[in-house]
């Protein structure tokens, strides 16, 4: 049985696409047949992060409208085996994603894939609701900052009332908190919400903490998901998150200031 995972947040620009690319790549690297779908109709981004922008011929909406088959639209990833990408449409018609259309495609994909990752657009409107509607699990991407935490809580409310699982009275959607752009130094100075604070407020299970890191930008510049930069802090943090998603019990890393940061704090700026 395929597992459908939505990567969602409410607030924009918090790291959903970065996360979708890395989680999907991590799952595929561990041998899981994975497909990642860009639900951000009109604003396609995932193809850039995964460096397949020039290979997009058909997109998600083309398949829904019967203008292309799934096989024609799925793009095979160049970095890892077992990974396919379904690009978002650049149409301006936001209602192009119908519930029936999305359901049909997900059902089809579920026949062959182990994991279906849905990269949600920002907001709590139609596009975001379509991305989360059929989810079995949700990765709620949150920055340690008031508006992001508040929006995450709203998204949790929608998952609990408007998802297919909620509507059918099935087991609720599994909720995972992924705290991204975390800066332990600023937390120590009292300038940034700590991971415990966010956990306490949202009251959901912590999947991982991704440090605020230059390596994310370096990776996106090159079109390589940061999880493949195995020497980077963010890459390792994503890798741990994938292991936890697969049920492994891993201790959280990068919550404290790295050693050299201590001396920098004492003697530097």
């Amino acid at each position: 049985m395929a597992k459908i995972i939505v990567v969602t947040s409410g607030k924009g620009g918090v790291g959903k696409t970065t996360t979708s690319a890395s989680i999907a790549t991590g799952l595929a690297k561990r041998g899981k047949k994975t497909v990642v779908i860009d639900f951000d109709v009109g604003l396609r981004n995932l193809d850039l992060i995964m460096n397949c922008e020039r290979r997009v011929v058909y997109d998600f909406v083309n398949v829904i409208n019967g203008e292309a088959t799934l096989t024609q639209a799925l793009i095979k990833d160049k970095h890892v085996d077992n990974l396919y990408i379904l690009a978002a449409s650049q149409t301006r018609d936001k209602d192009a994603l119908t519930k029936e259309g999305v359901e049909g495609i997900l059902n089809k994909l579920a026949e062959t894939y182990d994991f279906i990752i849905c990269d949600s657009p920002a907001g709590i409107e139609h596009g975001a609701q379509m991305a989360l509607h059929f989810a079995d699990e949700a990765i709620v991407v949150t920055n340690p900052e008031v508006s992001s935490v508040r929006d995450s809580d709203r998204i949790l409310g929608i998952l609990q009332s408007k998802s297919r699982r909620a509507e059918l009275g099935m087991d609720p959607v599994g909720e995972h908190l992924l705290l991204t752009r975390y800066n332990p130094e600023r937390v120590l100075k009292g300038e940034m919400l700590a991971v415990e604070d966010v956990k306490e407020i949202l009251a959901i299970k912590l999947l991982g903490v991704i440090p605020d890191s230059q390596s994310v930008l370096n990776a996106s510049n090159q079109g390589v998901p940061v999880i493949l930069d195995e020497n980077s802090d963010a890459g390792q943090a994503y890798s741990d998150a994938v292991d936890r998603l697969l049920g492994e019990d891993k201790e959280h890393r990068f919550l404290d200031i790295q050693k050299k940061g201590f001396f920098k704090r004492m003697f530097g700026g």
Partner: peptide
């Protein structure tokens, strides 16, 4: 300011 943020949230 982080504790103010937490309270408000």
């Amino acid at each position: 300011t982080a504790s103010i943020a937490k309270e408000r949230l």
